[in-house]
Design a protein around this nucleic acid. Structure first.
Lengths: 200, 200
DNA sequence: TCGTGACTTGAACACTCGTCCAAGTCAAGG
DNA sequence: CCTTGACTTGGACGAGTGTTCAAGTCACGA
């Protein structure tokens, strides 16, 4: 096996964990399965991570980071596409939704790891921080969209952001259960209409 | 150990499983832990259930049934409490929310088992059925509320129901992450306003 | 060139896991 | 009363778990 700096090995193992757990769920998270997925001998894992817990923690962090990055990339384009609020919001939702439909298993894993983290005293802060960051990102996005379309929110930005996070999270969860993309889009349209009524 | 009909033993084991997993998460689901929780010898579990998988399947079914029953009980009272749509919807949300806040760990378990089921080919239909039943129940509730308040939905009832399921599911998930009840209520108020605009 | 330290390796530990099964117990029907 | 069959019991099996560790390998700076 090629000799590789530990930082790179950690990255390799984290990515292997994400791939494995996306495919088979959190229940498949064992050191041996992960070492096989990364095509690396068993002992290497504990050379790179003090414990399984640490590996999982870093995996959760990395997954959240990647999700944020992907969402940012998908949302950056449509932000200036529409001149009116409704079409800007619709475009943003479509961009997010294309991400969801492209990687259902990864979405499901995100929910699984969220619940997993909330169960563990050491991991819970990671989940809480990810949740705060999500709210912040959506807040910024909604602020940008409002100014780009010459509108102004008539309710606190925090409240609008939370509503959007609530709806997207719930819609994703629903879709994971019934894969009804049409219904998801319908829900999005209703919410876009509601958001339009919250701006002047 | 008292001799008890197998049907009753099954119920006892299912309830013990719900209690254990509510406290410690799906990761704690092992036959031995469950038998300890139920205060029953190990062998009895496999006398009552052909496999762990079957026990988990029945546990998911039972949890969903209990959730539905509890929601129905909590929502039956406020249904006729308000004469206008907004207060009726608000009352319904508050009733649901009191359930959520009373049993956060059980709510989290519901999400965990949902994801767990979606990962398993044998269990996935159970999750899908539960999801369909939830939509149906909410549809009926919204229909009742509309007629009770002399209003009529201007968009298909299915779409309103899905919106409500989306929001309540997302709001619950958010709250499990940050326990911000005030924010949840604010979100609910915004949604109630949006729903009010969807009825004539 | 040599040695030092970062990296690799697979065996071994004690433990838990789901499942099976032979033996035991006891209430009910003949 | 005895037999039948439903229910109970705990040990056993092989497989999988996280973690440890002694030994091995090799690139790189002195």
């Amino acid at each position: 096996m090629a000799r590789v700096p530990v930082a790179q090995r950690r990255w390799q193992l984290i990515e292997a964990t994400i791939a494995l757990l996306s495919r088979e769920g959190v229940g498949a998270a064992s050191i041996r399965r992960i070492s096989e997925e990364a095509d690396v001998p068993l002992g290497l894992v504990h050379y790179c991570f003090a414990s399984k817990q640490e590996l999982i923690a870093e995996t959760i962090r990395q997954l959240n980071t990647e999700n944020t990055t992907a969402a940012r990339a998908a949302l950056s384009v449509p932000a200036d596409a529409g001149t009116d609020l409704r079409s800007a919001l619709t475009a943003a939702f479509r961009a997010y939704w294309s991400l969801v439909e492209r990687s259902p298993r990864r979405q499901l894993l995100t929910y699984e790891l969220n619940a997993y983290a909330l169960r563990d005293k050491e991991l819970a802060p990671i989940a809480e921080q990810a949740h705060r960051e999500l709210l912040t990102n959506v807040r910024v996005l909604l602020d940008e969209i409002a100014t780009a379309t010459g509108r102004q929110w008539t309710v606190p930005l925090d409240d609008v952001a939370r509503l959007v996070v609530t709806v997207t999270g719930g819609a994703t969860l629903n879709w994971l259960n019934d894969r009804d993309s049409t219904a998801a889009l319908t829900t999005a349209n209703l919410v876009v209409g509601a958001l339009d009524a919250l701006a002047t």
